[in-house]
């Protein structure tokens, strides 16, 4: 596979600039009599970040698996560049320009940075690997994303979680992805590392990719998202553009919205009484100023 930039992509240029690259229309998936996903409408456009939020079991993983080509859908249609597609395997999805960056299975930890970067798409001269060339490209691509790794021979296991996610993202961009799906990239990361990953999401968006950002953190989603979709029990319960809602509304919807209000009503009767007195801890130099 050779790297493709969006400017070279004639098919994309012919179509209206705001036409979705990936479009799911009323897509559903049932396993026997269980409907894991019903009537989902999602689209990804060039230079747009679509955030998919949802609690555990909301159907996020099923959705990713459908787009990534691990499962086929049973209802509705999925269109890539306006053409209805069914993916038979992840390989086919990749060939169609859809790259998926999974949270935990992105890179082999004991392998060096450059080996991971080119895994499955090695550059060769004759039968040999062209190692200097691969190191050079990997270094350049990572620098473009703003990560500096001086030693391309370093095993990725020694890098931070954020850096690893970023290598996976840079790799997907380099190998010509049009749509990149990020499966909870910030879930296992600290505040600073999450910030690093969010910056690369913006970088990927600015590089002209359609980004689908799967998360259950509305704060992270609102920092980068253009479009928000909330899944609950396999259905879309909210589908809104950024200017149609505030972070408070998004957080409220994610936290359960109506359900949370009902829950607080139910739990009002349960008065949590004191069991033992709180420990009297000597405060250090910090004096709590509650009223300030």
């Amino acid at each position: 596979m050779s790297p493709v930039t969006v400017h070279d992509n004639v098919a994309a240029a012919d179509r209206a600039a705001d036409a979705p690259i990936l479009e799911l229309d009323d897509v559903g998936k049932s396993y026997g009599n269980v409907h894991a996903l019903r009537g989902v409408n999602i689209s990804a456009r060039q230079g747009e970040v679509t955030c998919v939020l949802g609690d555990n079991g909301a159907g996020k993983s099923t959705l990713i698996k459908i787009i990534a080509g691990l499962h086929d859908y049973t209802d509705g249609t999925m269109k890539i560049d306006g053409e209805v597609r069914h993916f038979g395997s992840p390989r086919v999805a990749q060939a169609a320009g859809i790259a998926t960056v999974y949270q935990d299975l992105a890179l082999a930890p004991l392998m060096s940075v450059w080996r991971n970067f080119f895994l499955g798409n090695e550059i060769r001269s004759g039968i040999r690997l062209d190692i200097p060339e691969m190191k050079r490209i990997a270094g350049e691509e990572l620098t473009k994303m703003g990560i500096v790794i001086p030693d391309m021979e370093r095993p990725v296991g020694g890098l931070s979680g954020g850096q690893r996610q970023c290598i996976a993202i840079a790799r997907a961009i380099y190998f010509g992805a049009k749509v990149i799906i990020l499966d909870e990239p910030t879930a296992a990361l600290g505040v600073k590392q999450s910030g690093v990953v969010l910056k690369y999401i913006i970088a990927a968006r600015d590089a002209g990719l359609g980004v689908i950002f799967i998360t259950h953190n509305p704060h992270h989603a609102f920092l980068v998202g253009n479009h928000f979709v909330i899944l609950k029990l396999g259905r879309v319960v909210l589908d809104a553009h950024r200017d149609e809602l505030t972070l408070e509304q998004l957080t409220g919807e994610m936290a359960g919205g109506q359900e949370l209000a009902e829950l607080s009503h139910e739990l009002r009767g349960a008065d949590p009484e004191k069991v033992v007195a709180p420990h009297d801890v000597e405060h250090g130099s910090i004096t709590p100023e509650l009223d300030s």
Binding site: Y102, A106, L107, A108, P109, L119, G120, N121
Partner: peptide, 12 residues
């Protein structure tokens, strides 16, 4: 050997 799921995900 390092991570067969990661390898499969990139098409090995």
């Amino acid at each position: 050997g390092g991570d067969d799921k990661a390898a499969r995900a990139v098409g090995v």
